[in-house]
Design a protein around this nucleic acid. Structure first.
Lengths: 241, 241
DNA sequence: TTGTATTTCAAACAGACGTTTGATACGCTG
DNA sequence: CAGCGTATCAAACGTCTGTTTGAAATACAA
């Protein structure tokens, strides 16, 4: 895949890794069986344990986040306008998650394994998610400005990642609700554009008039004695009850 | 749970259902074992098959979306302002997904099973997700107005649901990134408030100047011959390359 | 070619899984 | 109390899982 495997052993390794990425991204770590992976790789059942020690070891080696990091590097150098770079990031990330032709299987495995911990989750967090959060955090800081609180910025990050991951995560359900749904290049770009528009508006409100708005809301009920430590908001219901 | 079980058999059934909801929401359908459920319910291993026919049957009966529907009903009657009702919806939905004290286990099971199809996914889609989409669709239509396209409105819905589900879905990862994270009542209300603010701003941009903005952008490159059928946007990169 | 190390293979292993069985204990009606 | 249907139980069933084994095949150096 990445380079020509010269010896027969290296070819077997490569075939196993490809088959494993395919199977893990489709059925999850638990759902994918060693036997099916070996069948797809045209290798013996014992091959996984011979080459990778165990199923866990196979997963660990199948995870390759180089494309994800490369995407972040090219993004930094792409444009000086942080809003444009956010649009690019969302677009590239969605292509990795959804595009059938050049989708990054490790990213899909990552998306699958977010929910239920796998022996490899620590590696995923360390090598993929933590750097991704750092990258996206800096980018959002440029857009939102220095006055926005760290917690609010973090929640904006979650809003963006949540929107992106939703389309991969809920794909089986969306397919049942809208039969005939398929993610072509065109649809993915449309979705990415929507998420970017939606999120830039959201960041604008949170970073712009956010603090002022909240202040005004609080002062409408001036007798409030600062109940919790981190009140911030969350009193939408009380306002109308 | 819902009413006092009178006979011993009904008590066993109720204990099995409670234990199943707990186990399924924690480990997923595949991950939860019949043996562990029966151990938690202090029942024999054969009890599941005696009372529910199979593990699948147990899942089907464990799913109970009455609280979810009740939430939608009370929401409709709560206020006339659709923006306030969206705030309430997000708040109540997040409490169902995250609050330890009165969280709705069936909703968490639903969130878990979105990704990989289960024998019960059809029931989940029919009884929970489809009605939820219909409810939220109508609510967003009130907010966005009649001029917003159906596809754009649908994407707004996905943006909101994606943000909400992210916190449940990615909880294991977020916990590793931010040790000591816990979702108390206060934090959940803060998060729900953020998602509401963020989303209302997003809807405002999409429904308001969305069409006009897009029109202006297209007319900047007037020689474009309407390439695809549903172009809409997705040309963020081409703009700068 | 011979010898040695590496790689593949069919077969079997031990354990966990959902499910079934037949006997036993229980609760109720007559 | 006797009788009967229901509910529970320990034990086993068959299947699937990841993994191990020892022999066979292959590749490569002397």
């Amino acid at each position: 895949m990445m380079y020509e495997a010269r010896t027969a052993s290296e070819q077997t390794r490569a075939r196993l890794l490809d088959a494993a990425r395919e199977a893990f991204s489709q059925h999850g770590f638990q759902g994918a069986t060693v036997r099916e992976i070996c069948r797809r790789a045209e290798a013996n059942v014992a091959a996984v344990n011979y080459h990778f020690g165990s199923k866990d070891g196979l997963l660990a080696e199948a995870l390759n986040f180089v494309p994800l990091k490369a995407m972040q590097l090219t993004n930094v150098k792409a444009d000086s306008d942080p809003e444009v770079r956010l649009r690019l990031f969302i677009r590239d990330f969605m292509l990795m998650l959804l595009d059938e032709t050049n989708g990054s299987l490790p990213c899909r495995i990552m998306a699958r394994e977010l929910a239920d911990p796998t022996p490899a989750l620590d590696k995923i967090v360390r090598e993929a998610i933590a750097p991704l959060h750092e990258f996206l955090g800096k980018l959002l800081r440029e857009i939102a400005g220095e006055k926005t609180g760290e917690a609010e910025l973090c929640r904006c990050m979650h809003s963006i990642l949540g929107q992106c991951l939703y389309y991969r995560h809920s794909h089986p359900v969306l397919q049942r609700l809208h039969p005939g749904l398929r993610y072509g290049r065109q649809e993915i770009e449309t979705i990415a554009g929507h998420i970017a528009d939606f999120s830039l508006a959201g960041i604008g409100r949170i970073s712009g008039k956010g603090a002022a708005l909240r202040e005004a809301q609080h002062s409408r009920r001036p007798g409030r004695p600062e109940a919790g430590k981190t009140t911030e908001r969350g009193d939408a219901r009380r306002k109308i009850l």
